[in-house]
Design a protein around this nucleic acid. Structure first.
Lengths: 214, 214, 214, 214
DNA sequence: AATGAATGAGGATTCATTCAT
DNA sequence: CATGAATGAATCCTCATTCAT
């Protein structure tokens, strides 16, 4: 399966085939339950070849995380247009995010389920990517606050928390949309904009929600 | 460690000791990487006793998920006061949620990392609990919409998406708060209320965020 | 099952209950697959009590073999009448044998399947009984030969072989009759008498079957 | 033992080595008592290789039963000459049977002790072979009856019982010959022919043994 | 470039047996 | 007389990884 057996195929191509098989297997079975045997068979090569090219299960998994992380970031950035207002940029990024995750469920699983669940060094590897997204969102919220001439400025840690919440909500919605038939990427993005942006605007305009005094 | 070895201890007590050890081990190592040997040793008993009382690794894991799920739900409900306005109820629930997850990081990991990652029947077991929380939040949003006499009513699926987003954001913030020193449960809850409630109010008052026309 | 739990019951009775359970379990599951747990539960007592009375799995199994062997022998002897001609005695013994084995399939299995299959000391234990049956049959054939004034006498080893064959055929027929619906003990005995006695008579009258000269 | 360790050996050869070791171990220890460890060591390979080639203890045992059954049948058929009279054919088959079982005591034990004792699917696997032998003998008895122009014909069920008895006697004699020093295959076969054929001839000539009237 | 052959190490599970009450 | 609590010792099986070709 995958490729005709025994054919001489350039290394770069073979590596991609192996990683395709690995992402699929890791994503569906989980990191521990995925066996090198299964990955090799799915890739249509012998196990020693997998080791020759990718060294070990850990390195293979790490390579998968990196590839999928780059692909996700590339998708998100590709939708961004730096000149636009913050909400438009966020809207574009979210649509790209939801579209990409819907189209790559195995990659999604590798990044958001497997990598985070199986400790170091995988969690860190994945966090590097996630942090870039959080930083992007943090930047958008900061920009919006500045546009609104908010005074005093929102404290950095508040902004960090808000970005974290927004990204977390996006991730949850991505999972929900993947499992709920008929929910499109656009709908998911609209839901999240509705949910978050108005609250952010109120915050920026100095009208935070007030906790009860007790 | 855990208990003095060899002591005769009533079954019910031993079972709790074993589950304490199991939650800790599953939470830190992951379901697959956790070995029954390690759990037994941490519980201060021999492996056969673990099997005698809890039957298998799967059943032990399931029992852990159930126990931690019940504990989390109990914590959240204990903070709820049915008579209060929706935002006050949400505020109370979130504080309880953040407090409980901060105090039980291993249980948190078992529920939100391990159970969700390792397929059936564990994911379902955990979803049962999560769905209760989502239903609670869904109810609050619906109540708030009714209080606001919103007309036309928010469509059910929109409410479901919003609840999903809110809960997802809460989960992400809980993880973030657990990893970020100095973030209290109260702060996390306030951040989330700020982030979400204003957006929800705007929605309820018929002022949704508008996507760009293109 | 078996007895009301906790009741004080005389040792002799309890032992029989345990052995009933053991014969059934050994007979159906096999010696190795039968667990002391299952036997104790079926007997309605706790495992330590089984050990208190019967010491070990091996001793319990040996006790079962002995009890069932004695029961089978007793059944066979009970049908014998020493004064009768040899064929009548054999006829009576076979009917008793087939009747008893049909009525005690678990005991049959313990003796003829389990005991013989699981090495020493069990095989020997069972052989002691079987040898008594073979000796009985050997005596009958010898007596018949003497009655027929056969001259020269049948060599002892030939008689031994014939007895072995007859007993073996009886055992095979017992198994066959147990598994074939509608075959009665009487029929099985008649088949075997037909099969064997005429050949024996010919032998005794000096008319053996002649192997081809080559 | 068995083979030099670590040598690269073609799969087909290794599999035979493993099965040799398995037949010996199963035959001597019994199915349950035989450990895969012992089999692997006796075969001169590591346990994983046994699993790689033969999958599981059950499959290995089944493969042994099949191999030994085929070998036994092949031996019996190899002695048969279809044109001969029934008694000559039986004589040839019996000699081959006793010779083969004497030369393959472990295979004998696997087939006639272990396979029959350890339930499904092993018992069935073995019965398939035994049924072929019974059918062969049934055919011979039927042929002999036809040659003798017996009228009325022997009922089918009687023939079946006789064949069962003859085969059972053969199996018992094979066991006896294996355990009794100095008994040759030829002797065992002659004993059985003497024992059985005259009785069969009498039956065929309408002179059955008559049970006592009571 | 590619693979058939092979293994060390570890993990889940079961069982006969004993101890303290 | 009777048992709930507890374990040492195996056993089956799997997997990541390497070697010789």
């Amino acid at each position: 399966m995958g490729a005709v057996k025994g054919k001489r195929i350039p290394r770069a191509v073979r590596e991609q085939q192996m990683m395709d098989a690995a992402v699929r297997t890791f994503g569906r079975r989980g990191y521990r339950a995925a066996s090198m045997d299964e990955i090799a068979e799915l890739a249509g090569v012998s196990k020693p070849l997998v080791y020759l090219y990718l060294n070990s299960k850990d390195e293979l998994f790490t390579a998968c995380i990196r590839r999928e992380a780059q692909a996700l970031l590339a998708a998100v950035w590709s939708g961004a247009e730096p000149g636009l207002p913050a909400d438009r940029q966020l809207w574009a990024g979210l649509r790209a995010f939801f579209t990409h995750t819907a189209e790559n469920p195995d990659g999604w699983s590798v990044l958001y389920r497997q990598a985070r669940t199986h400790g170091e060094p995988f969690a860190t590897e994945m966090s590097v990517m996630r942090d870039e997204i959080v930083a992007f969102v943090t930047g958008l919220i900061g920009a919006a606050a500045r546009e609104a001439h908010r005074d005093p400025a929102l404290p950095d840690r508040d902004v960090a928390g808000l970005a974290e919440a927004l990204v977390g909500a996006a991730e949850a919605l991505a999972g929900w949309a993947n499992e709920t038939p008929g929910v499109s990427a656009k709908e998911a993005a609209a839901t999240l904009m509705n949910f978050s942006w108005a609250g952010l605007e109120n915050l920026m305009n100095g009208r935070p929600w007030q906790p009860p005094s007790r």
